[in-house]
Amino acid sequence: MGVVIRTAGADDRDLVVRLLDEAFQDDPVSSWVFPGTDYRRRTHHRLMAAFADAVLADGRIDLTEDGAACALWLPVPAAEPGGPEPDGGSGGSTRDAPARIREAVDPDNERVEAIARLTDGIHPTDRAHEYLWMIGVVPGRQGEGLGTALIESVLDRCDREGLPACLEASSARGKVLYERLGFEFTGRALDLPDGPRMWPMWREPRTR
């Protein structure tokens, strides 16, 4: 039986935040942004809420019907020649968005702002594409193919419409999974200061 997927709405916000908080508690990048288990448990959910709010406003959240997995997607337009670069749905200039996120999440934590600035700096702007901001599966349901089903549903549309897609893998295991779906490492890794490595990945649409 296939995975049933629906588009999350405002009423699903709290569910999405709880799901992402649980799914990313042990993620290498989340552990770098919020070092220490107790601190991360108290604070991490605020960053997930900021991400969920941004995507509910400017993108789309796909949610499995059972609430066990979700994917946050943003449509990114190509930058116009001579014009400002697209802000990825941040609701303002990319220069100010990281500072706003830090203020909302944890004003004393410089890494909240740093991760936003570092990832902003590696996003391609020359072509319109779909950006997979985050995908999370609750720990007890990982390995069942839920994440793959969520991604493939969007990649099928990308292939039909001739759109590329991009993401940043936050673990070596995730990088292998994304490679199976047609994503390729761009060749420029992002090494967080005194922290883990992230792998920017790009996928060209497949012709049918």
Rank of each mutant, 00 (worst) to 15 (best):
G88K: 09
S90M: 11
S90P: 03
S90K: 06
T94E: 00
T94W: 00
T94G: 01
T94Q: 01
R95C: 02
D96V: 00
D96K: 01
A97M: 01
P98F: 03
A99M: 09
A99F: 12
R100I: 06
I101D: 05
I101S: 05
R102A: 11
R102N: 02
R102W: 12
R102C: 04
V105G: 02
V105C: 07
D106S: 11
N109I: 01
E110F: 04
E110N: 01
R111Y: 05
V112P: 07
V112A: 07
V112N: 07
A114V: 08
A114D: 14
A114G: 02
I115E: 07
A116D: 08
A116L: 11
R117I: 10
L118C: 02
L118T: 14
I122G: 05
H123C: 09
H123W: 06
P124A: 07
P124E: 08
D126L: 13
R127D: 09
R127S: 08
A128V: 08
A128Y: 07
A128F: 03
E130L: 14
Y131G: 10
L132S: 05
L132D: 10
L132W: 03
W133M: 14
W133G: 06
M134C: 07
I135T: 14
I135H: 07
G136P: 08
V137T: 15
V138S: 10
P139W: 01
R141Y: 05
R141G: 00
Q142T: 11
E144P: 06
L146P: 03
T148S: 15
T148W: 06
A149G: 04
A149I: 09
L150I: 12
I151Y: 04
E152A: 14
V154L: 12
V154S: 15
V154Y: 04
V154G: 07
V154F: 06
V154W: 09
R157W: 10
C158Q: 12
C158K: 10
D159S: 04
R160F: 00
R160N: 03
R160L: 05
R160E: 10
E161T: 11
G162L: 04
G162T: 10
L163R: 14
P164A: 11
P164R: 15
A165I: 09
C166A: 14
C166D: 15
L167G: 11
E168K: 00
E168G: 04
A169P: 10
A169V: 10
S171Y: 04
A172N: 04
R173W: 12
R173H: 14
